[in-house]
Computed example of a mutant assay.
Amino acid sequence: MKIWLQWKYRSAKGGAETVFRSDEMSAAQGVQIAEDLERTKRVRELVFIDSFDDSVWTIKEMKAYLKSIETEPHDITVYFDGGFDIANKNSGLGCVIYYSQSGKSYRLRQNEQVDELVSNNEAEYAALHLCVQELGYLGVKNMPVNFSGDSKIVINGMRGEWPVIETELVRWADRIEAKLDQLGIQPDYFLLPRKENFEADRLATQALKGIKITGTYAL
């Protein structure tokens, strides 16, 4: 969960008050900073504001929420990439998921070769769909998730900034959004330079070569 902190500050000599709002940060960072602020004895009405839906949380409620998700996958970042071999009409899908659970950090890697797609853009959408499926298998529900890829078509399409026109791409976008809604996932999409998406790219390339990769590793 990404949040803002908002609080009313009272000057040391009293009489002067103003309201501050922090930069966006993780909920865990917010709790740490909120505790430091409260120690000053000059902070009033401190709340957490969820950057996704503007819901308001007290520090007690936020601590309880963080405690409740300790044993569930959280702090999730997903990388996806799709490749398409024009000559063979095969596609390779790559998926990397970083997450935390029970106080440990993990990396999941998964790839897949498919032969029913028609373009590189469709392979990119299919790779994102593969990632969303893997989140479901992990048991991710009602969580914010960061999705990162190097496809402008997919990232801007899923953000709603570019229209999705091709029929096959519309079908993939609809499937992805339906699955995200089913899992209660709050997506945030980030466009990466290709060189920064090397893990997912390598998995997609290996899939095209018929090399299957699957597994989860503790970091």
Rank of each mutant, 00 (worst) to 15 (best):
W57V: 00
D81Y: 14
S68I: 00
E166P: 07
S105I: 08
L130I: 01
Y65D: 02
R10D: 08
Q206A: 13
I97C: 11
D85I: 07
N111W: 11
L130V: 01
E112W: 07
E116T: 15
K209C: 07
I33P: 03
W172T: 00
D181N: 13
A16D: 15
V43Q: 07
F84A: 07
H74N: 09
I49G: 01
W172P: 00
S119I: 10
Q6S: 05
A200I: 14
S91M: 01
L93H: 10
F52A: 04
F52M: 00
K141G: 01
D115H: 14
E199H: 12
R107Y: 09
T77L: 13
V170S: 12
N156R: 11
V31G: 11
E35Q: 13
N120H: 09
R39L: 02
G30C: 12
S26N: 08
E177N: 15
W57Y: 06
T40V: 06
R21N: 00
G160H: 04
S102Q: 10
I69E: 02
L219N: 03
E124R: 08
A27C: 12
K179S: 08
E124L: 04
A27T: 08
V164M: 05
E122S: 12
G82K: 11
K141D: 02
Y9M: 06
P163L: 13
A16S: 14
A12Y: 12
L192E: 11
R202L: 05
E70G: 00
A123Q: 08
A34G: 11
G92D: 03
Q6I: 02
G15Q: 00
A173K: 15
S22E: 01
K2F: 07
S11R: 08
L5T: 00
P187D: 10
Y217G: 03
N142M: 05
I3G: 06
I59G: 11
Y217K: 08
Q113Y: 05
A173Q: 15
S100Y: 05
W7R: 01
V78L: 02
N90G: 01
T205C: 08
S22A: 02
A178V: 11
Y137N: 15
E38Y: 02
S55W: 00
E72D: 13
E45N: 12
L37F: 10
I49Y: 00
G149L: 00
D115M: 14
F147P: 04
G139S: 13
E124H: 07
A64Y: 03
L93C: 10
T77N: 13
V170H: 13
A126W: 04
S105N: 14
G184F: 04
E24T: 06
N156Q: 09
F48N: 00
R175G: 03
L128Y: 04
A12V: 08
A34S: 12
A207I: 07
G94T: 04
A218Q: 14
W4Q: 06
V164E: 04
V47P: 01
V132G: 05
A127M: 02
I33S: 04
E72A: 14
E116L: 14
Q133P: 07
S148C: 10
E38K: 12
P193A: 06
L108G: 09
R109P: 12
H74D: 09
I59H: 11
L183F: 04
R39A: 02
N197Y: 07
L180E: 08
L117D: 09
L169F: 06
K195Q: 15
W4A: 02
L66P: 06
L46Q: 02
V140R: 14
Y125H: 09
Q6D: 01
V132T: 07
V43W: 03
D181I: 10
K104M: 09
P163A: 14
E61P: 03
